[in-house]
Structure formats: structure tokens, C-alpha cells
Amino acid sequence: MRNKKALLLLSGLVAIFCLSTSAFGLSDAFKNNIYNPGIMKPTDSVLKVNVGDRAPDFTLPAVSGGKVSLGHYLGKKNVVLSFVPAAWTPVCSDQWPGYNIVKQIFDKNNAILLGITVDNIPTLFAWTNQMGKLWFDILSDFWPHGAVAAKYGVLRSDGVTERALFVIDKKGIVRYIDVHNINERPRLEVLVKELEKLGK
């Protein structure tokens, strides 16, 4: 019995050792202004929507000014929601700049991208300014804090969101969900494949 417990403990330690990886390549664009929170629990929330569900509507303020509603795109565009945990953190800072050079892939698949964090507008303004001119809207789910993230089930217990992607078709139906390991950036090719499926 004692042996079994010891084995279980050892296996747990091994699993933590194997799974607790974080890797990011940090652009010099952010200089030394990035706060590294270290390795975090890969996911820490319970999804409230599933593939096939109608995507919960929302309206959020955008860094570019004004407000953006998901419902605005109904019947017009496929929508990718990219939740990232927090401004000025390592992996997040190296995610949206990549999406910024693939507008043609989104256009080809009649899709738009909405970036969302729980940071406030001034913080998002300063942070995203380091990324160059972004072609997509950045939305603030700051107040009521993380309400949209909570509606989708991607608000973590510490108040930041998961690193999550939702692909929503023109009918407003969720077609793909990736609540990714918060410590890693999702592969672009996986998202591209999901976008290409929408046209088939």
C-alpha cells in the first residue's frame, strides 16, 4: 500500500516535470517591459459553450474607439475570437503580431478576428502599439471584469482569461474551440485549417 502511494507520488512528480513547459520567443519590440508570470496551470476554467452551440453575443469597447458587438457580424462574416490572458506577458505578446501578417488568410475565408483580454483600454492601447498597426479589433473585457470570458467559460480563477480560440461561423454557431495550454502559443496552421473548413 505504502509502495503504491510512493509510486503514485513519483508518477505525479514526473507528470508535472514533463508537462510544465513554457516556451516563447520574445520580440525585442517589447524591450524589457514584459512581465513573466512563470509556468501557470495549463487550463483553469470550465467551458460554458460547446461546438455546435450558438455563440453568446456580447458588446465590448475596442481600442480603436467605439464598441464592437459579435452580433454585428451575423450573416456577414465568420469570426475568430482570440482570448489571451494578459497584456505585457510573454506568450501573449508574441501571438497577435503573427495574426497581423495573415490578414489575407482571414479574408480568403471571409473571416474577421477579434482579440480580447480582461485588461483595460489604456493598457491595451500601450501594449498593442508595440505590435505595429493591427488590422483587427482589440476588445477590452475589463468591466464588468471578464464578463464575456465568463460567459464563454474561459475566465480563470485568478481573473485572467485562458489562451483560447473560438471559431464562429456566419450563422453565429461555434465551429471550433481551442482552450490552449496557457503557457504555449497555438499553432497557426491548426487555426487556418479550421477556417478553411468553414467554406467546405
Binding site: 520567443g25 520580440s27 525585442d28 519590440a29 508574441d94 501571438q95 503580431p97 503573427g98 497581423n100 501578417i101 508595440q130 505590435m131 505595429g132 502559443r185 497557426l188
Partner: peptide, 12 residues
């Protein structure tokens, strides 16, 4: 050159 497609400076 060590670069990344996600790096704004590398793009610029």
C-alpha cells in the same frame, strides 16, 4: 538570424 513570424521587429 534568429527571428519569429510573431515578432514585430523581425517583420519590420
Amino acid at each position: 538570424e534568429i527571428f519569429s513570424m510573431y515578432c514585430p521587429h523581425c517583420q519590420g
